[in-house]
Amino acid sequence: MFDWLIVGAGFAGSVLAERIASQRHESVLLVDRRSHVGGNAYDCYNEAGILIHRYGPHIFHTNSQSIVDYLSQFTQWRTYEHRVLAAVDGKLLPIPINLDTINRLYGLELNSAQLEEFFASRRETVEDVRTAEDVVV
């Protein structure tokens, strides 16, 4: 006998089961059609003993320290930095566009305040904004 039945052991089901068990001190039966918890964010060792992401890579992003603290009870973190570069005029530039992108693209050394002035001096008026390009212009 259980106090709760939760169907689905992905993120939502796993967290809900843990919270009910640890905070309410009630019993939970957590079921899933897969043989593991964590949904698609599941790692396992293959036949060669190499840790793999069975359902593809997963990257976690948050600015909330309380979420990091909570999840750190259940996992160890691997530091990862994801950087996207675009090839523009023979240069590899960071995307989304930031201060470094503009400085490298135009050979400048602007600070944040100067970047605002730079953009203001080149701003064009678009009467009818209909596309992503219109927004950038």
Results as ranks from 00 to 15, higher is better:
residue 117 E to N: 12
residue 104 R to N: 15
residue 84 V to A: 06
residue 44 C to R: 10
residue 82 H to C: 07
residue 104 R to M: 08
residue 30 L to Q: 11
residue 50 I to G: 12
residue 83 R to Y: 06
residue 102 I to W: 03
residue 118 F to H: 15
residue 58 H to Y: 04
residue 30 L to T: 09
residue 96 P to I: 00
residue 25 H to E: 14
residue 106 Y to C: 14
residue 72 S to F: 00
residue 83 R to Q: 13
residue 35 S to R: 11
residue 117 E to V: 12
residue 104 R to F: 04
residue 45 Y to E: 12
residue 100 D to C: 02
residue 92 L to P: 01
residue 69 D to C: 01
residue 72 S to A: 06
residue 116 E to R: 13
residue 94 P to Q: 01
residue 36 H to E: 10
residue 76 Q to H: 11
residue 74 F to T: 02
residue 47 E to F: 01
residue 54 R to M: 08
residue 114 Q to L: 09
residue 26 E to C: 05
residue 101 T to M: 02
residue 19 R to H: 13
residue 57 P to S: 11
residue 91 K to T: 03
residue 84 V to S: 07
residue 46 N to Y: 01
residue 26 E to Q: 13
residue 22 S to H: 09
residue 114 Q to H: 11
residue 80 Y to G: 05
residue 47 E to P: 01
residue 19 R to N: 14
residue 30 L to H: 12
residue 56 G to T: 02
residue 98 N to V: 01
residue 64 S to A: 11
residue 75 T to Y: 05
residue 75 T to H: 03
residue 29 L to D: 14
residue 60 F to H: 06
residue 88 V to K: 02
residue 44 C to M: 08
residue 107 G to F: 01
residue 69 D to Y: 00
residue 117 E to A: 14
residue 35 S to N: 15
residue 85 L to N: 11
residue 41 A to Y: 01
residue 26 E to H: 04
residue 81 E to N: 07
residue 91 K to A: 11
residue 75 T to F: 02
residue 116 E to V: 14
residue 88 V to G: 04
residue 67 I to F: 05
residue 67 I to M: 11
residue 81 E to D: 10
residue 28 V to Q: 10
residue 89 D to A: 11
residue 56 G to S: 07
residue 59 I to H: 08
residue 54 R to A: 12
residue 25 H to A: 14
residue 27 S to E: 09
residue 81 E to T: 04
residue 59 I to F: 09
residue 39 G to T: 00
residue 119 F to W: 15
residue 60 F to L: 11
residue 113 A to S: 15
residue 44 C to F: 07
residue 27 S to N: 08
residue 76 Q to W: 04
residue 77 W to C: 04
residue 42 Y to H: 13
residue 107 G to M: 04
residue 40 N to H: 13
residue 52 I to E: 15
residue 29 L to M: 14
residue 16 L to I: 15
residue 95 I to A: 10
residue 38 G to Y: 00
residue 39 G to Q: 02
residue 114 Q to D: 14
residue 43 D to P: 00
residue 113 A to E: 15
residue 41 A to C: 13
residue 101 T to A: 09
residue 60 F to K: 02
residue 17 A to D: 11
residue 80 Y to R: 10
residue 68 V to A: 09
residue 106 Y to S: 12
residue 68 V to S: 07
residue 57 P to Q: 09
residue 61 H to F: 13
residue 20 I to K: 09
residue 73 Q to K: 07
residue 33 R to W: 08
residue 111 N to P: 06
residue 47 E to M: 03
residue 64 S to K: 05
residue 79 T to R: 10
residue 33 R to V: 12
residue 36 H to C: 06
residue 15 V to A: 15
residue 86 A to N: 03
residue 28 V to P: 06
residue 86 A to V: 04
residue 89 D to N: 13
residue 21 A to V: 05
residue 52 I to A: 09
residue 84 V to W: 00
residue 68 V to E: 11
residue 57 P to Y: 05
residue 95 I to S: 10
residue 89 D to W: 00
residue 80 Y to W: 02
residue 15 V to W: 13
residue 15 V to L: 14
residue 65 Q to K: 06
residue 20 I to R: 09
residue 33 R to T: 13
residue 21 A to N: 12
residue 100 D to K: 06
residue 96 P to Q: 03
residue 79 T to G: 13
residue 101 T to N: 08
residue 39 G to F: 00
residue 103 N to I: 00
residue 68 V to C: 06
residue 86 A to S: 05
residue 105 L to A: 14
residue 67 I to Y: 06
residue 39 G to D: 03
residue 52 I to T: 12
residue 119 F to I: 15
residue 41 A to F: 03
